[in-house]
């Protein structure tokens, strides 16, 4: 303890606070460093910690607000259904590219979501984009509206099916990573319907 630190009691507290918020990032960077080396050793671990500290100090990121909790069962359901989706939609898109008739029409749809958390929306958008056949064009953060481009829809029923599948995916994400409040919001929100947007069919 130096005299400077004693006159500024906030510094230590702020540093600890910052360190706690950056901890997941630090752990992730250390893991990446060790994976890059390919072997686990104390030298790699120490080197990883030094590199992770340097990276977070030189290139600071805003902390993820709200925090998260991981529910093992929900995570398992999320990962399992994500893998099934990935394989089945991948096969479908691959078939659409090679079949003689090709694709018919695509659509751009807006989906009103029920969660209002940066982290959950990010996970949802990433998983929706990773699943073949749907891609996130835009996200209206204020209104929690996801704008999607979906490949090959034949009629309005297909559009509604895509919208419903995104909402199911949202539920899985929230049940895997959300807090109790956010899970409660999931069942409450259909009471507040999104005003119907004008359809424009060319």
């Amino acid at each position: 303890m130096t005299a400077d630190a004693a006159t500024e009691p906030g510094v230590g507290g702020r540093l600890a606070h910052q360190l706690r918020h950056q901890l997941p990032l630090l752990v992730w960077l250390v893991v990446v460093w060790n994976l890059l080396w390919g072997t686990w050793s104390w030298a790699n671990l120490l080197g990883g910690i030094v590199v992770a500290l340097a990276v977070t100090w030189l290139l600071p990121l805003p902390p993820v607000v709200g925090g998260t909790r991981v529910r093992p069962l929900g995570l398992l359901v999320f990962l399992g259904s994500f893998l099934v989706d990935l394989v089945s939609s991948g096969a479908q898109v691959a078939w659409q590219t090679v079949r003689p008739s090709g694709i018919d029409r695509s659509a751009i749809i807006r989906v009103q979501l029920r969660t209002d958390s940066d982290l959950l929306l990010t996970i949802l958008a990433e998983s929706v984009t990773l699943v073949p056949g749907s891609m996130v064009l835009d996200l209206d953060r204020d209104r929690s509206v996801l704008v999607l481009h979906v490949l090959h829809v034949r009629d309005e029923a297909d559009v509604e099916r895509q919208r419903a599948s995104v909402l199911v995916q949202e539920e899985r994400v929230v049940r895997a990573f959300g807090t109790a409040d956010e899970i409660a919001a999931l069942s409450r929100a259909p009471g507040e319907p999104f005003p119907a947007v004008e359809r424009r069919t060319p």
């Binding site: 029409r105 659509a107 751009i108 559009v159 424009r200």
Partner: peptide, 10 residues
């Protein structure tokens, strides 16, 4: 080639 474009209207 678009069936629906809900983004365009808003």
């Amino acid at each position: 080639r678009l069936l629906v474009d809900e983004q365009r209207s808003t």
